[in-house]
Design a protein around this nucleic acid. Structure first.
Lengths: 155, 155
DNA sequence: TATTGTTATACTCTATAACTATA
DNA sequence: TATAGTTATAGAGTATAACAATA
């Protein structure tokens, strides 16, 4: 298949739509007082309670110093708690608070509406096809639900 | 269709893959000494030779002051020329140089390889399906080839 | 001596607003 | 007076490196 056969391509529209979707999602999470990156942190901590800040930095692929401000915001908002590790007192074990778990439920509702919005214009068969194809690509590239390559930087 | 039926969703993988594709493309254009935003400018100027900086700012949805540095870089590289308008000497008419047109051809080659990379893992039928579905979504949202919502900011 | 979290600093990039030249 | 392009300034956000506490 030559480039002539695929004038549209997929990379460019993927980039356009991905950016569009990210911006819309950011607008929605802003109403909860959260950035998409903070939502990502909450999701990670739900699956890995007690993760250290260093460990979180590694998962996110960002500098450890960035985690400080990120967690500061979530802690001030009351969604995350820092606990001095009893086994190694250098570590902070990061855990969701009840409010943190609660806001994650609200995020799910928002994400639902968001997904509907992005899918608008597709019928059910098209939606399923698209979901399958995108899932195939993300899996092929090792992109798990945890790691959003954009959450290393704010969006 | 409920959210339960579509656990995967499309918005999140779109955002992930879009970001991934954008980063990979940025890595490729960097070898030409161009940012994706600058490539976007070259594409726009090819279609709208003589566009003013103000007009370009409007197309990109960014502040006019940002255009200055953007065009400075392209002009220094020899890809774009500023021409004082003869009809209104306040305006700069922006036009591609021969080198600018030439580098756009190199961009096309790069974009080809990039598209292949992003599509890796899909067979031809899947590729065509995906291209069609993405195209349907971009058209529904008024995203033309010119306007990439991310090019208002660097990526 | 090495590591965790934190802070200090420098850097990149943007938008707002002031400035000039033209109209 | 209004507009195009430019420059000055401030703001947001990041990473690197220095620092204190702990191992």
């Amino acid at each position: 298949m030559t480039f002539q056969d695929r004038r549209q391509g997929i990379a460019y529209p993927l980039s356009q739509l991905g950016n569009f979707a990210a911006r819309r999602f950011a607008a929605r999470t802003q109403e909860l007082g959260l950035t998409p990156a903070q939502v990502g942190v909450l999701r990670i901590l739900r699956n890995r309670p007690g993760l250290s800040q260093r460990g979180l930095a590694e998962v996110l692929g960002s500098a450890p110093s960035r985690i400080v401000a990120l967690i500061d915001g979530l802690q001030t908002a009351g969604f995350v708690q820092r606990r001095r590790s009893t086994t190694d007192r250098r570590n902070h074990e990061l855990v969701l608070t009840d409010d943190g778990a609660s806001v994650l439920h609200q995020v799910r509702t928002i994400a639902e509406a968001h997904d509907e919005e992005i899918a608008e214009g597709l019928d059910e068969a098209e939606y399923n096809d698209l979901a399958r194809l995108l899932n195939k690509l993300t899996r092929a590239r090792g992109l798990t639900h945890d790691v959003h390559p954009g959450y290393s930087a704010p969006e």
